[in-house]
Simulated assay, not measured.
Amino acid sequence: MHQTNSQLDNKKTYLITGVAGFIGFYLSKKFLEQNCNVIGIDCLSHYYDTNLKYTRLEQLKPFEKFSFIQGDISDKETVSKLFEDYKPNFVINLAAQAGVRYSIENPDVYIQSNIIGFYNILEACRHYPIDHLVYASSSSVYGANKKIPFEESDLVDTPVSLYASTKKSNELMAYTYSHLYSIPSTGLRFFTVYGPMGRPDMAYYGFTQKYFSGEPIKIFNNGDFNNDLYRDFTYIDDIVEGIERLLSNPPVGGEGVPHRVFNIGNNNPEKLMVFIETLEKCLTKSLGREVVFEKVFEPIKPGDVPATYASTDLLQQAVGFKPKTSIEEGLQKFTDWYCEYYKLK
Protein backbone atom coordinates (compact mmCIF):
# COMPACT_ATOMS: atom_id res chain seq x y z
CA MET A 1 0.00 0.00 0.00
CA HIS A 2 1.50 3.37 -0.93
CA GLN A 3 1.76 6.26 1.50
CA THR A 4 -0.25 9.23 0.39
CA ASN A 5 2.00 11.88 1.89
CA SER A 6 5.69 12.46 2.16
CA GLN A 7 7.42 10.93 5.11
CA LEU A 8 10.72 12.72 5.34
CA ASP A 9 12.69 11.80 8.43
CA ASN A 10 14.47 14.77 9.99
CA LYS A 11 16.74 12.47 11.96
CA LYS A 12 18.22 11.17 8.72
CA THR A 13 20.73 12.78 6.38
CA TYR A 14 19.92 13.57 2.75
CA LEU A 15 22.76 13.96 0.26
CA ILE A 16 21.78 15.95 -2.83
CA THR A 17 24.31 16.14 -5.67
CA GLY A 18 23.97 19.05 -8.08
CA VAL A 19 22.55 21.10 -5.20
CA ALA A 20 23.08 24.46 -6.94
CA GLY A 21 21.20 23.18 -9.98
CA PHE A 22 17.56 23.86 -10.74
CA ILE A 23 15.98 20.68 -9.30
CA GLY A 24 18.67 20.25 -6.63
CA PHE A 25 17.97 23.71 -5.22
CA TYR A 26 14.19 23.32 -4.97
CA LEU A 27 14.47 19.84 -3.50
CA SER A 28 16.98 20.98 -0.87
CA LYS A 29 14.84 23.98 0.04
CA LYS A 30 11.77 21.78 0.56
CA PHE A 31 13.73 19.32 2.73
CA LEU A 32 15.35 22.08 4.80
CA GLU A 33 11.98 23.72 5.36
CA GLN A 34 10.93 20.39 6.90
CA ASN A 35 13.97 20.51 9.19
CA CYS A 36 15.94 17.71 7.49
CA ASN A 37 19.74 17.49 7.40
CA VAL A 38 20.84 18.24 3.85
CA ILE A 39 24.36 17.82 2.52
CA GLY A 40 24.78 19.41 -0.89
CA ILE A 41 27.62 19.00 -3.37
CA ASP A 42 28.06 20.93 -6.62
CA CYS A 43 31.03 21.73 -8.84
CA LEU A 44 29.40 25.02 -9.96
CA SER A 45 30.28 24.33 -13.60
CA HIS A 46 30.16 27.13 -16.17
CA TYR A 47 27.74 25.35 -18.50
CA TYR A 48 25.33 28.24 -17.84
CA ASP A 49 25.42 31.52 -15.89
CA THR A 50 26.91 30.69 -12.48
CA ASN A 51 25.26 33.78 -10.94
CA LEU A 52 22.04 31.82 -10.99
CA LYS A 53 23.73 28.96 -9.11
CA TYR A 54 25.09 31.35 -6.48
CA THR A 55 21.65 32.97 -6.14
CA ARG A 56 20.15 29.54 -5.42
CA LEU A 57 22.89 28.69 -2.90
CA GLU A 58 22.40 32.03 -1.12
CA GLN A 59 18.82 31.01 -0.40
CA LEU A 60 19.93 27.70 1.15
CA LYS A 61 22.78 29.01 3.30
CA PRO A 62 20.62 30.50 6.11
CA PHE A 63 19.30 27.01 6.98
CA GLU A 64 21.23 25.62 9.96
CA LYS A 65 20.95 22.03 8.77
CA PHE A 66 22.49 22.72 5.37
CA SER A 67 26.12 21.86 4.57
CA PHE A 68 27.61 22.71 1.19
CA ILE A 69 30.66 21.10 -0.39
CA GLN A 70 32.04 22.53 -3.59
CA GLY A 71 33.34 19.48 -5.41
CA ASP A 72 32.95 17.27 -8.44
CA ILE A 73 31.35 13.83 -8.23
CA SER A 74 33.68 12.64 -11.00
CA ASP A 75 36.49 12.83 -8.41
CA LYS A 76 36.31 9.51 -6.56
CA GLU A 77 38.18 10.70 -3.49
CA THR A 78 35.79 13.63 -3.00
CA VAL A 79 32.78 11.32 -3.14
CA SER A 80 34.28 8.69 -0.78
CA LYS A 81 35.22 11.35 1.76
CA LEU A 82 31.75 12.86 1.56
CA PHE A 83 30.12 9.51 2.37
CA GLU A 84 32.67 8.76 5.08
CA ASP A 85 32.22 12.15 6.79
CA TYR A 86 28.44 12.50 6.55
CA LYS A 87 27.16 8.91 6.19
CA PRO A 88 24.03 9.90 4.25
CA ASN A 89 20.91 7.75 4.59
CA PHE A 90 19.33 8.97 1.38
CA VAL A 91 21.15 9.97 -1.81
CA ILE A 92 19.52 11.98 -4.58
CA ASN A 93 21.88 12.17 -7.55
CA LEU A 94 20.97 15.16 -9.71
CA ALA A 95 24.51 16.20 -10.65
CA ALA A 96 24.95 15.69 -14.37
CA GLN A 97 26.03 17.46 -17.48
CA ALA A 98 22.69 18.35 -19.00
CA GLY A 99 21.61 19.32 -22.49
CA VAL A 100 21.15 17.37 -25.70
CA ARG A 101 22.75 19.72 -28.23
CA TYR A 102 25.77 20.50 -26.03
CA SER A 103 26.63 16.77 -25.95
CA ILE A 104 27.40 16.92 -29.66
CA GLU A 105 30.03 19.65 -29.12
CA ASN A 106 31.45 18.55 -25.75
CA PRO A 107 31.20 14.78 -25.33
CA ASP A 108 34.00 14.58 -22.72
CA VAL A 109 32.11 16.34 -19.94
CA TYR A 110 29.16 13.95 -20.34
CA ILE A 111 31.36 10.89 -19.84
CA GLN A 112 33.10 12.50 -16.85
CA SER A 113 30.02 13.70 -15.01
CA ASN A 114 27.28 11.33 -16.08
CA ILE A 115 29.21 8.05 -16.31
CA ILE A 116 32.28 8.33 -14.03
CA GLY A 117 30.48 10.60 -11.57
CA PHE A 118 27.53 8.25 -11.27
CA TYR A 119 29.83 5.24 -10.97
CA ASN A 120 31.54 6.96 -8.01
CA ILE A 121 28.15 7.53 -6.36
CA LEU A 122 27.21 3.85 -6.83
CA GLU A 123 30.55 2.69 -5.41
CA ALA A 124 30.07 4.93 -2.38
CA CYS A 125 26.53 3.57 -1.84
CA ARG A 126 28.03 0.09 -1.96
CA HIS A 127 30.68 0.82 0.70
CA TYR A 128 28.51 3.03 2.91
CA PRO A 129 25.07 1.39 2.81
CA ILE A 130 22.11 3.73 2.36
CA ASP A 131 18.31 3.51 2.67
CA HIS A 132 17.56 4.62 -0.89
CA LEU A 133 19.33 6.05 -3.94
CA VAL A 134 17.17 8.18 -6.24
CA TYR A 135 18.88 9.33 -9.43
CA ALA A 136 18.02 11.49 -12.41
CA SER A 137 17.51 9.74 -15.70
CA SER A 138 15.79 11.53 -18.57
CA SER A 139 12.93 11.33 -21.03
CA SER A 140 15.61 11.46 -23.74
CA VAL A 141 16.27 7.71 -23.17
CA TYR A 142 13.12 7.05 -25.23
CA GLY A 143 15.01 8.33 -28.26
CA ALA A 144 13.08 8.06 -31.49
CA ASN A 145 10.32 6.01 -29.82
CA LYS A 146 7.22 6.25 -32.01
CA LYS A 147 4.79 4.82 -29.47
CA ILE A 148 2.95 7.52 -27.51
CA PRO A 149 2.70 7.96 -24.55
CA PHE A 150 6.12 6.70 -23.42
CA GLU A 151 5.84 3.92 -20.87
CA GLU A 152 8.60 2.65 -18.60
CA SER A 153 8.26 -0.82 -20.15
CA ASP A 154 9.07 0.50 -23.65
CA LEU A 155 12.38 -0.49 -25.23
CA VAL A 156 14.96 2.26 -24.78
CA ASP A 157 17.73 0.95 -27.00
CA THR A 158 17.75 3.75 -29.58
CA PRO A 159 19.12 6.92 -27.91
CA VAL A 160 19.67 9.70 -30.46
CA SER A 161 22.14 11.79 -28.42
CA LEU A 162 25.19 11.06 -26.27
CA TYR A 163 23.34 12.69 -23.35
CA ALA A 164 20.55 10.11 -23.73
CA SER A 165 23.14 7.30 -23.92
CA THR A 166 24.72 8.39 -20.65
CA LYS A 167 21.31 8.44 -18.94
CA LYS A 168 20.41 5.01 -20.28
CA SER A 169 23.75 3.69 -18.99
CA ASN A 170 22.98 5.18 -15.56
CA GLU A 171 19.86 3.03 -15.44
CA LEU A 172 21.86 -0.07 -16.42
CA MET A 173 24.63 0.65 -13.88
CA ALA A 174 22.12 1.28 -11.09
CA TYR A 175 20.31 -1.95 -11.93
CA THR A 176 23.58 -3.91 -11.73
CA TYR A 177 24.58 -2.37 -8.39
CA SER A 178 21.08 -3.02 -7.00
CA HIS A 179 21.37 -6.62 -8.18
CA LEU A 180 24.89 -7.22 -6.83
CA TYR A 181 24.80 -5.22 -3.60
CA SER A 182 21.06 -4.88 -2.82
CA ILE A 183 21.15 -1.08 -3.06
CA PRO A 184 17.53 0.13 -3.22
CA SER A 185 17.51 2.52 -6.17
CA THR A 186 14.98 4.44 -8.23
CA GLY A 187 15.63 6.15 -11.56
CA LEU A 188 13.50 9.11 -12.61
CA ARG A 189 12.91 9.99 -16.25
CA PHE A 190 12.25 13.72 -16.13
CA PHE A 191 10.18 15.38 -18.85
CA THR A 192 11.09 19.03 -19.67
CA VAL A 193 11.20 20.59 -16.20
CA TYR A 194 10.54 24.34 -16.04
CA GLY A 195 9.86 27.13 -13.55
CA PRO A 196 11.36 30.19 -11.80
CA MET A 197 15.15 30.08 -11.41
CA GLY A 198 15.24 27.36 -14.06
CA ARG A 199 18.01 26.51 -16.50
CA PRO A 200 18.85 29.26 -19.03
CA ASP A 201 19.67 26.62 -21.68
CA MET A 202 16.02 25.51 -21.75
CA ALA A 203 13.86 26.82 -24.60
CA TYR A 204 11.31 28.79 -22.55
CA TYR A 205 14.12 30.66 -20.75
CA GLY A 206 16.05 31.25 -23.97
CA PHE A 207 12.95 32.56 -25.77
CA THR A 208 12.39 35.06 -22.96
CA GLN A 209 16.02 36.21 -23.07
CA LYS A 210 15.89 36.62 -26.84
CA TYR A 211 12.77 38.76 -26.59
CA PHE A 212 14.41 41.19 -24.17
CA SER A 213 17.57 41.43 -26.26
CA GLY A 214 15.48 42.21 -29.35
CA GLU A 215 16.32 38.99 -31.19
CA PRO A 216 13.99 36.57 -32.96
CA ILE A 217 13.37 33.14 -31.43
CA LYS A 218 14.27 30.05 -33.43
CA ILE A 219 11.69 27.31 -33.64
CA PHE A 220 13.03 24.02 -34.91
CA ASN A 221 9.99 22.57 -36.62
CA ASN A 222 10.42 23.51 -40.29
CA GLY A 223 7.62 26.05 -39.88
CA ASP A 224 5.14 23.20 -39.96
CA PHE A 225 2.40 24.09 -37.47
CA ASN A 226 0.63 20.80 -37.91
CA ASN A 227 3.54 18.48 -37.27
CA ASP A 228 3.87 16.47 -34.09
CA LEU A 229 6.17 18.77 -32.15
CA TYR A 230 4.86 18.11 -28.66
CA ARG A 231 6.50 18.42 -25.27
CA ASP A 232 5.45 17.21 -21.86
CA PHE A 233 6.31 20.26 -19.73
CA THR A 234 6.57 19.53 -16.00
CA TYR A 235 6.53 22.30 -13.39
CA ILE A 236 9.32 22.20 -10.79
CA ASP A 237 7.00 21.85 -7.75
CA ASP A 238 5.48 18.70 -9.25
CA ILE A 239 8.94 17.19 -9.77
CA VAL A 240 9.92 17.95 -6.15
CA GLU A 241 6.74 16.41 -4.78
CA GLY A 242 7.22 13.29 -6.88
CA ILE A 243 10.81 12.82 -5.64
CA GLU A 244 9.79 13.47 -2.05
CA ARG A 245 7.06 10.84 -2.15
CA LEU A 246 9.25 8.25 -3.86
CA LEU A 247 12.14 8.71 -1.45
CA SER A 248 10.24 7.19 1.45
CA ASN A 249 9.06 4.31 -0.76
CA PRO A 250 12.25 2.45 -1.70
CA PRO A 251 11.86 -0.62 -3.87
CA VAL A 252 11.93 -3.85 -1.90
CA GLY A 253 14.22 -6.61 -3.11
CA GLY A 254 12.01 -9.49 -1.93
CA GLU A 255 10.75 -10.58 -5.33
CA GLY A 256 13.70 -9.39 -7.37
CA VAL A 257 16.20 -6.61 -7.85
CA PRO A 258 15.43 -3.50 -5.71
CA HIS A 259 15.54 -1.16 -8.68
CA ARG A 260 12.73 0.75 -10.41
CA VAL A 261 12.37 3.42 -13.05
CA PHE A 262 9.56 6.01 -13.20
CA ASN A 263 8.51 8.71 -15.62
CA ILE A 264 7.93 12.06 -13.98
CA GLY A 265 6.10 14.11 -16.56
CA ASN A 266 2.93 16.11 -16.84
CA ASN A 267 1.05 13.42 -18.77
CA ASN A 268 -0.45 16.29 -20.77
CA PRO A 269 1.74 17.19 -23.76
CA GLU A 270 1.47 20.66 -25.26
CA LYS A 271 2.12 21.66 -28.85
CA LEU A 272 5.25 23.76 -28.89
CA MET A 273 3.41 26.65 -30.55
CA VAL A 274 0.74 26.64 -27.82
CA PHE A 275 3.50 26.73 -25.21
CA ILE A 276 5.11 29.72 -26.97
CA GLU A 277 1.79 31.59 -27.20
CA THR A 278 1.18 30.94 -23.49
CA LEU A 279 4.65 32.30 -22.70
CA GLU A 280 3.83 35.47 -24.69
CA LYS A 281 0.56 35.90 -22.74
CA CYS A 282 2.28 35.40 -19.38
CA LEU A 283 5.00 37.93 -20.25
CA THR A 284 2.32 40.36 -21.39
CA LYS A 285 0.70 40.02 -17.96
CA SER A 286 3.99 40.32 -16.06
CA LEU A 287 5.04 43.47 -17.95
CA GLY A 288 1.64 45.09 -18.44
CA ARG A 289 2.28 45.53 -22.18
CA GLU A 290 1.78 43.28 -25.16
CA VAL A 291 4.57 40.82 -25.91
CA VAL A 292 4.87 39.06 -29.27
CA PHE A 293 8.00 37.12 -30.19
CA GLU A 294 9.57 37.49 -33.60
CA LYS A 295 9.81 33.92 -34.89
CA VAL A 296 12.20 32.18 -37.28
CA PHE A 297 11.48 28.60 -38.32
CA GLU A 298 14.31 26.14 -38.89
CA PRO A 299 14.71 22.39 -39.48
CA ILE A 300 14.72 20.15 -36.42
CA LYS A 301 18.23 19.71 -34.92
CA PRO A 302 20.18 16.43 -34.76
CA GLY A 303 19.59 14.72 -31.41
CA ASP A 304 16.23 16.46 -30.88
CA VAL A 305 13.15 14.33 -30.44
CA PRO A 306 9.91 15.52 -32.13
CA ALA A 307 7.54 14.50 -29.31
CA THR A 308 7.79 13.66 -25.61
CA TYR A 309 4.79 12.41 -23.73
CA ALA A 310 4.96 10.56 -20.42
CA SER A 311 2.64 7.91 -19.14
CA THR A 312 2.60 8.53 -15.36
CA ASP A 313 0.46 5.53 -14.39
CA LEU A 314 3.31 3.71 -12.65
CA LEU A 315 4.14 6.73 -10.52
CA GLN A 316 0.51 7.13 -9.58
CA GLN A 317 0.21 3.48 -8.60
CA ALA A 318 3.39 3.63 -6.50
CA VAL A 319 2.87 6.87 -4.57
CA GLY A 320 -0.59 8.14 -5.50
CA PHE A 321 0.78 11.18 -7.25
CA LYS A 322 0.20 12.84 -10.61
CA PRO A 323 1.70 16.22 -11.61
CA LYS A 324 -1.03 18.85 -11.83
CA THR A 325 0.38 22.33 -12.57
CA SER A 326 -0.94 23.79 -15.84
CA ILE A 327 1.46 25.59 -18.20
CA GLU A 328 -0.57 28.80 -17.71
CA GLU A 329 0.05 28.70 -13.97
CA GLY A 330 3.65 27.51 -14.21
CA LEU A 331 4.76 29.94 -16.93
CA GLN A 332 3.12 32.88 -15.14
CA LYS A 333 5.25 32.12 -12.07
CA PHE A 334 8.32 31.92 -14.31
CA THR A 335 7.72 35.22 -16.15
CA ASP A 336 6.90 37.06 -12.91
CA TRP A 337 10.15 35.79 -11.40
CA TYR A 338 12.15 36.54 -14.58
CA CYS A 339 10.99 40.17 -14.80
CA GLU A 340 11.78 40.72 -11.13
CA TYR A 341 15.15 38.90 -11.14
CA TYR A 342 16.43 40.80 -14.20
CA LYS A 343 14.77 44.05 -13.00
CA LEU A 344 12.66 44.49 -16.13
CA LYS A 345 9.68 46.23 -14.60
Rank of each mutant, 00 (worst) to 15 (best):
M173G: 03
P216R: 11
S248R: 02
P251V: 10
E152R: 01
E151T: 14
Y163H: 06
D154N: 12
G206F: 15
P196N: 08
D224V: 08
R260T: 04
E215T: 02
E244G: 08
D157A: 14
N221C: 11
V193Y: 06
A174W: 04
T176A: 01
P184D: 07
I243S: 07
F150K: 03
R245G: 02
Y205K: 10
G253H: 13
F207Y: 15
D157Q: 11
P216L: 06
M202D: 13
N263H: 08
Y181C: 08
G254R: 05
L162H: 01
I239M: 11
N267A: 11
K218T: 07
I219N: 07
T176R: 05
D228A: 13
F220A: 09
G265Y: 03
D237L: 08
I217G: 09
D237N: 11
T208N: 12
P196E: 03
E255A: 09
V257Q: 00
F190K: 04
T192M: 07
H179E: 14
S248W: 10
M173D: 03
Y175R: 04
P184F: 10
G206T: 15
Y163G: 05
Y204A: 11
E270F: 02
S165L: 15
I217S: 10
L279D: 12
N226Q: 14
T208R: 13
D228V: 01
S161N: 01
L155A: 12
G265H: 04
Q209E: 14
Y204T: 10
N266E: 00
K168W: 00
R199W: 14
D201G: 06
R245C: 02
N226V: 04
E241H: 06
Y175E: 07
P258S: 01
D201H: 15
L272D: 05
S178N: 10
V160Y: 11
F225A: 13
I243C: 02
S169V: 08
L172Q: 04
R245E: 00
P258A: 01
L162P: 11
P184E: 06
P149L: 09
P184M: 12
G195S: 06
P196G: 01
R189Y: 00
G256I: 01
L188Q: 09
F207R: 09
I239F: 12
F190A: 08
P200Y: 14
L188C: 15
M273F: 14
P251A: 06
P200V: 12
Y211V: 06
G253K: 14
Y177T: 10
F191E: 02
F190T: 03
R189P: 04
S178E: 09
M202P: 00
S213Y: 14
G195V: 10
V193L: 02
E244R: 12
N226E: 11
F262S: 03
L279I: 12
R260C: 03
M273C: 03
Q209T: 10
P200I: 13
H259K: 08
Y205C: 09
V156C: 10
N227A: 11
A174R: 08
I239D: 06
N170G: 07
E270T: 09
I243V: 13
P216K: 15
N249K: 07
F220W: 14
V261I: 10
I183Q: 13
S185P: 02
F191Y: 12
P216T: 05
G265S: 03
L180S: 09
E151F: 07
L246A: 06
N268Q: 13
P159T: 01
N263C: 03
